[in-house]
Amino acid sequence: MNQIYISYAWKDNSELGSKREELVDKISEALISERYNLIRDRNYLTLGKSIHNFMQEIGRGNYVIVVVSEKYLRSEYCMFEAVEIMKHKDYEQKVFPVILEDANIYTKEGKSEYIKYWKQQREKIEKLIASELSDREYSAMHDVAEKIIEIYGKVDELISFISDKLSIDPSKNFNAFINQLTDAIRNDAAKLRSQKSILVAGTGNFNIPDEVNWCAQKLGEKIAEYNYNLITGGWQGVDYVVADKFAEKIAQKNLRLTDKLTHVVPRGKQPVFKGGKVEYTESGINEWLDCLRHSDLVILVGGVGGTYETYLYAKQEKIPVIPIVCTNGDAKKVFDEMLVNWDSKLMGNISTDKFKSLNQYINDASTAEDVVNDVMDIVNEIIFAKIMLNL
């Protein structure tokens, strides 16, 4: 699960400290209201928690808001957090600095003053260890010295980074700052789609109704366009049509089909669509369970029995299901049943009203595409919630 950390100087009862705390509170409230998994050391560091481990955890965090103030830049605790963050190769894309007015980092003199300060701190601690602790193999002061030496070695790089990175000041344009952060997270989520797989199940014969055929074709195209992987049971009908259209789009993207498409079929059988990767399983319950083992989400199109069983096993395995209700059959049955027993958390907190909006009429390929676009909007929201939010 992705997390957002806030690194800032707290335990400050001054007027500036109170304003800083108010700003961090406001940022926290806005992100929590959007269900992001937010962590602040003020709330995290209860009795028994390791400060050192927490600082390293911040460094490994997916996103970090660094609230830079005069106190932050002269705090051993805060600056060590910053050093841990910088140890990760992609920190430039994951860090969102907030530069407060008292942080003098935009002038040559200001930068030099902070570098000079940490040089003096290093010299003091080295002198102390050399004169008073030289006869001891180890003490807590040695750990402090290592941290300060490390901070001094990184302070120039840190100040240059935060002063050069374009960032919106939330104290002046709060909504724009929150949008900048959440847009970056959503862009990362889009990249992570390539690691997520969608199982499409539906009518398993070639004599499928037009609305089922149109939806299966558009699904194959859209799943590929959004860069998800596709899982099928290798049947004729919906499985074949969705795989065929999916393969066409994957070829246009110059990707290997075996990396993106998997058919799970009983031993001794072959998938009707010839292409992609084949995984064999035992007949019976494993045909469903092994398909679901690969899947992050299930979409149902029509169906006359086996599709409903897919839903039952997916429900058992806590995998979200989206039935395209207007393709009727099992999909309509599942749609009605899901509304009666709505599981908001499993469905990424999608509202029932949004889910009900899928109940549209299909009379041609164009209206089928509209429905599939709405389906994929919900798919993306559910996947985003599963990998990015505190759900």
Rank of each mutant, 00 (worst) to 15 (best):
Q3M: 08
Q3T: 15
I6K: 00
Y8T: 01
A9K: 11
A9Q: 08
D12W: 02
S14G: 09
G17S: 11
E22S: 15
E29C: 05
A30S: 15
L31V: 08
I32N: 09
S33E: 14
Y36M: 10
L38Q: 01
D41Y: 01
Y44I: 09
L45H: 02
S50D: 10
F54Y: 14
M55V: 03
G61E: 05
V66H: 00
V68G: 01
S69K: 04
R74D: 03
E81Y: 01
V83A: 13
E84H: 10
I85E: 01
K87F: 04
K89L: 10
D90S: 15
Y91I: 03
P97I: 07
D102Y: 07
A103Y: 01
Y106A: 04
T107S: 15
K108P: 00
E113D: 15
Y114G: 13
Y117N: 06
Q121E: 15
R122K: 15
E123Q: 12
E123V: 09
K127F: 08
K127M: 10
A130V: 04
E132P: 01
Y138F: 15
M141E: 13
D143A: 13
D143H: 10
K147L: 11
E150M: 08
G153C: 04
K154E: 14
F161D: 09
I162Y: 09
D164I: 02
K165C: 11
I168E: 10
P170H: 07
N173I: 04
N175Q: 13
I178M: 09
N179T: 13
A184Q: 07
Q195L: 13
K196R: 15
S197E: 02
I198C: 12
G202I: 06
T203N: 11
G204R: 06
F206H: 13
N207H: 10
N207T: 10
N213W: 07
K218L: 12
E225I: 13
N227S: 15
N229V: 03
N229G: 15
L230H: 01
T232D: 12
Q236D: 15
Y240W: 13
V242P: 04
Q252F: 05
K253T: 01
K260C: 12
L261P: 00
V264F: 06
V265F: 02
P266R: 06
P266K: 05
K274Y: 10
V278L: 10
Y280K: 11
E282F: 07
E282V: 07
G284N: 07
W288T: 07
S295N: 04
L297W: 08
V298S: 02
V301D: 00
G302I: 02
G305Q: 06
E309D: 14
Y311G: 00
Y311H: 14
L312F: 05
A314C: 13
Q316H: 10
P323D: 11
C326K: 04
D330L: 06
A331L: 05
A331P: 07
K333I: 12
V334G: 03
V334M: 04
M338D: 04
D343R: 06
K345G: 09
K345R: 14
M347Q: 14
S351A: 06
T352C: 06
K356A: 12
N359V: 01
Y361F: 14
D364Q: 07
A365D: 14
A365Q: 12
V371L: 07
V375N: 00
I382K: 00
A385L: 03
N390F: 06
